[in-house]
Simulated assay, not measured.
Amino acid sequence: MSTDVEPQRGGRGARQRIIEAAIKLFYQEGVNATGVERLAAEASVSKRTLYQHFPSKTAVVEEYLRYIRQHVGDPIHPDADAARRSPRARILALFETPPAGGLMRGCPFHNAAVEAADGMPEVHEIVEAHKRAYVDGLVALVREAGAANPTLLGNQIAVLYEGAAALSTSLNEPEPWTYARKAVQTLVDAAIKRASA
């Protein structure tokens, strides 16, 4: 998932600049590694201004995750162009191999959950809601594709997605996405074949 956002400098829109800085820094450097001073500097605001918009760093993390959830493309609930593709094609599109050469950082929701540990329960609630909605969306998508046992298949695809994201991050290599895509294609085609038999 790309989170490249070029922050604006100075002037109005401090809240949006803080969110944009959080998108960049939290994803690339990590939630815990990014201090409030660094976040304020990247957003071109004072710490005072940051705290006027967000009462705590945790509040910034929460808004960062909400913003990503609302504004990043979603193949499960796609825009009009992506919706023209078949459900099977949309499932496989989830596993397109990211371009090589960039730093693999994985899922921002998973990363935030790991970094939040027990210190930010509100963050865990946002992550859990997102992941549950994601699995539910996969189940609906495989049902639409005509697969047998969509609950099982949707959950299997979710596990493969999470595994590909984690392993590509650990190895800093895109190949896990290729392997996961092949596994998903096999599972989806077999489930569709069973349903039509």
Rank of each mutant, 00 (worst) to 15 (best):
G146V: 01
R84S: 12
E96K: 09
G30R: 03
V45W: 07
D189Y: 14
E20C: 05
A164Q: 03
M120C: 02
A180Q: 02
L187H: 02
E37V: 12
L187Q: 06
A133D: 14
C107F: 04
T34I: 00
H110T: 13
I126S: 13
V184C: 05
H53Y: 15
A82W: 06
P55S: 09
G10V: 10
Q16R: 15
P174K: 15
A59D: 10
A82I: 04
A166L: 01
V31H: 07
T3D: 01
G11D: 06
C107R: 11
Q28N: 01
T3G: 08
K193C: 02
L65D: 12
L25A: 13
L65T: 10
Q28E: 09
L171H: 03
A116W: 11
N155H: 10
K57P: 10
I19Q: 07
F109K: 09
A59V: 08
A197R: 11
E144M: 10
A83F: 01
A59Y: 04
R69G: 14
D189P: 03
R9F: 04
F109I: 07
D189F: 07
N172R: 04
G101Y: 15
H71C: 06
Q185S: 15
V159Y: 04
L50C: 15
L160C: 00
R12Y: 09
H110D: 08
G13S: 08
Y179C: 11
T186C: 05
D81T: 15
V60R: 05
D81Y: 14
L141C: 08
A164H: 08
G137C: 01
A89R: 14
A93S: 14
R84A: 14
P55A: 07
L103K: 07
A165L: 05
R15C: 04
L160I: 00
L65V: 11
G11M: 03
E115P: 09
G146H: 02
Q16S: 13
T151F: 01
T186G: 02
F95Y: 14
V142S: 00
H110F: 12
Y51R: 14
M120K: 06
A100R: 14
R132P: 07
L141F: 00
E144C: 12
A140T: 03
V184K: 07
K57T: 10
P78W: 04
E162C: 10
L138P: 04
V60N: 14
A80G: 00
N32W: 07
A183T: 02
E96L: 12
V5E: 00
R17E: 06
Q156F: 00
E162Q: 10
V61I: 13
P98E: 12
Y134H: 01
L50H: 15
P150C: 12
I19K: 11
I126A: 13
G13E: 06
A166T: 05
A33P: 07
R17Q: 05
D189R: 09
P55L: 03
R66P: 01
E42Y: 09
R85W: 02
M104R: 09
A183W: 13
S170A: 15
E144H: 11
D74Q: 06
A33S: 06
M104N: 02
G154S: 08
C107G: 08
A14L: 06
L167A: 11
A40C: 05
A14K: 10
Y67L: 14
G13Y: 08
R9M: 04
T49A: 05
C107M: 14
L103Y: 01
A113S: 07
R69Q: 13
T97G: 13
V114R: 10
G35C: 13
L94G: 15
V45Y: 09
I76S: 15
L138Y: 03
A80W: 02
A113Q: 04
E144T: 07
E20Y: 11
